[in-house]
Design a protein around this nucleic acid. Structure first.
Lengths: 190, 190
DNA sequence: CGGTCTCTTGACGGAGTTCAAAGCTAGTGG
DNA sequence: CCACTAGCTTTGAACTCCGTCAAGAGACCG
């Protein structure tokens, strides 16, 4: 269903029905299985992904060889490696499905053409990325000011349903502490 | 000089001279002294700031009562609290001049009108904020994967001139370690 | 010069990591 | 529908990186 994307876009701008048709003709829904990758380290990222259903994550492999989740994207979020996408350089990141998911993939060439045909979409992406940037600013604040335990409780309070959906070790690394420590927090042994 | 902003904008889009005139009529250069604030915690942030000359920083006061720098902005960077700006809610942050600086302040009402009059500017801000978001993604990666010492050396290697300009305790908190620890890293006593 | 920022040093403590092993759980195929 | 396996979570002990505190030494500015 492209509906999800249309509804999201129309939170920020209003599209003519002809524009919706144009947009629709460029879209491309795909199903992606849990653990499948959309991007791997070293590849140039040339696509933006919109999550219609399910959950994606961006992660890296750290110096100890462990996966470390840097970002999640659930329904109505975009995910991509912005740096690789804009500068056409190899990515530092992996993007992978956490659950069986449905996504809309927008290739850079398609998206660039679309932005020229429907300039209003510039506004949509401008607002969406400014808001995402704002969320990142808050994320840094939380990482800097809260202890591991506080970060866990804060996340748990704000996204209780999400904590159910996603393996704990991914959440632990997203909150920047070890899976073992998370386990101890949950058991109240801290 | 508005030149700095025009030159930055024209890296991403091309403006007609009439558009430059329109834009210029909305701009507003101001001089701001070291330590002066553009935003304080609790205020609603209704302005975006472009740094023409000098350096600004975004910081918070943490639970121990210490200032913690979350972000710097030097020449050709924008700085604002995106969340407060977009959602019209009180800010969690302070924005302050690190040096005597010259900035262009764009008030939300002015900017919104300008974006309607010159829709091309949507594209400029879209690209700028996507790139800023990309930089944040890398920043999170560095924070997650490097030790304090590695973060210091990495920062020092990439922005040696910047390390000269800014007090060490600000850089220490930006890299998320204490000023004392930074001092020990520099002395090679780690 | 005098006072306020800023940087340095060392001793001590604690939050969170690492490692290893065992206990669960859920998905898969027989 | 059960058995098996791989992936996930839990536990505890030892360790370490880095913070905190306190005090002193510079450095910069009015």
């Amino acid at each position: 269903m492209y509906e999800a994307l249309f509804r999201h876009i129309e939170k920020f701008i209003t599209l003519e029905s002809s524009e919706i048709d144009t947009l629709e003709s460029c879209l491309n829904l795909s199903t992606i299985k849990k653990k499948e990758h959309l991007l791997k380290e070293g590849q140039v990222c040339t696509t933006m992904y919109f999550v219609v259903k399910g959950c994606m994550r961006q992660y890296i492999i750290n110096t100890k060889g462990c996966e470390q989740t840097l970002q999640f994207a659930i329904e109505d979020w975009w995910i991509t490696d912005q740096l690789s996408y804009h500068n056409h350089i190899p990515s530092h990141f992996y993007i992978q499905a956490v659950e069986n998911s449905e996504i809309i993939a927008m290739d850079k060439s398609v998206l660039e053409a679309l932005l020229i045909e429907i300039p209003k979409l510039e506004r949509y992406f401008r607002i969406v990325s400014q808001k995402a940037f704002g969320a990142m600013q808050m994320r840094i604040k939380f990482l800097f000011t809260m202890s591991a335990e506080e970060r866990y409780h804060h996340f748990n309070d704000h996204f209780p349903e999400f904590v159910q959906r996603v393996p704990q070790y991914m959440i632990a690394s997203y909150l920047d502490f070890s899976a073992e420590f998370m386990s101890k927090i949950r058991a109240g042994k801290v």
